[in-house]
């Protein structure tokens, strides 16, 4: 029993990590229908910038509580990533707004490669460790353990999802976003500056990516210039699972993917009588993904898709 509870906690935390990144993905997708392949790299930049600030502060012997130092790192990373996100949209995506659908996908991959290699040049090829400045304690729940950082990740992803949903549903900007998503031309006729709205979407999405990056690297204790790729991929899968473009869907998809992976890795051996092991964890996850999409071709919470092949 405690093993099952532990596996569920493992899955939910892992899922929240995916959800954090997926939220940014899905925001951009919702408005532009663009798979922003570089989103994972923006997340990586967030982690790297924060780490640079944190190690500079620690190196200078600043006498502040760990949480404050981490927060300072985060507060530098957020605007840095926002700027980066704005720049990416402006330089690599905006000129292709009316190009064939797959063209921005290629620039997105290009941006992703460029960002990885710039990060490699700046921060080197090594893995960088995230100093243990956040609380390291844990709590016991039904025989299972949950750490402070894990709780932080769960809470952060939930708070961000709610905040973003409120932003999209309740604010002027949110209304403009939804209008632009439906039809940039019509929104323009209604006095919405589509370019501004899209820029803001990228800025907000990238800000969230920074938060995700910092939390992820704090949780696993490391950062690396290549970390964004796989993270982005999983987050993208999560977003699609939940119904891409839908914020609650990204959260649901993320959590579900995390739990599926966790239970898959934990129990696949028992289910198949030891024939398959945790090496088939991803097979299991993708299998569930495929089944879900066959039953619901637009994801769990997605609207039926219109033709956009």
């Amino acid at each position: 029993m405690d093993i099952l509870v532990q596996q569920l906690i493992n899955g939910l935390v892992l899922g929240s990590v995916y959800a954090l990144v997926a939220l940014g993905y899905t925001m951009v997708y919702g408005i532009l229908e663009l798979i922003n392949f570089a989103h994972g790299e923006v997340t990586m930049f967030g982690a790297m910038v924060a780490l640079a600030v944190i190690s500079a502060l620690l190196g200078a012997g600043v006498d502040l509580p760990g949480v404050v130092i981490a927060l300072l790192g985060l507060l530098t990373a957020i605007p840095a990533c926002m700027l980066l996100g704005y720049g990416i949209e402006r330089l690599a995506y905006r000129p292709l707004r009316h190009a064939p659908r797959l063209a921005p996908l290629i620039t997105a991959i290009g941006v992703s490669i460029v960002l990885q290699n710039i990060a490699m040049l700046i921060w080197g090829r090594q893995y960088i460790s995230f100093p243990p400045i956040l609380p390291q304690g844990y709590h016991t729940l039904l025989g299972a353990r949950i750490t402070d950082v894990q709780i932080l990740i769960l809470v952060a992803s939930l708070v961000l999802m709610v905040a973003l949903t409120l932003l999209v549903q309740r604010t002027q900007l949110g209304r403009a976003m939804r209008a632009t998503a439906q039809s940039p031309q019509l929104a323009g006729l209604m006095g919405v500056d589509a370019n501004r709205v899209i820029s803001l979407t990228f800025i907000i999405g990238s800000g969230i990516a920074a938060v995700a990056g910092v939390l992820v690297s704090a949780y696993y204790g490391l950062a690396h210039y290549y970390m964004g790729f796989l993270l982005g991929l999983k987050a993208f899968s999560a977003a699609v699972l939940g119904g891409v473009g839908n914020l609650a869907g990204a959260m649901l998809g993320g959590l579900l993917l995390g739990v599926i992976e966790s239970l898959g890795a934990g129990y696949i051996g028992d289910i198949t009588g030891g024939f398959l092991g945790s090496n088939y964890q991803d097979v299991f996850a993708f299998f569930v993904l495929i089944i879900v999409l066959i039953v619901r071709p637009s994801g769990l919470l997605g609207k039926p898709s219109h033709d956009r092949a």
Binding site: Q7, N10, L14, E261, S262
Partner: peptide, 21 residues
Amino acid sequence: AREYTTDKSTDFMAILTSIKS
């Protein structure tokens, strides 16, 4: 227990929980 991960993973909670049992 014989468990597996990948050379790109950072999360091993699931297999470690299983190992713990």
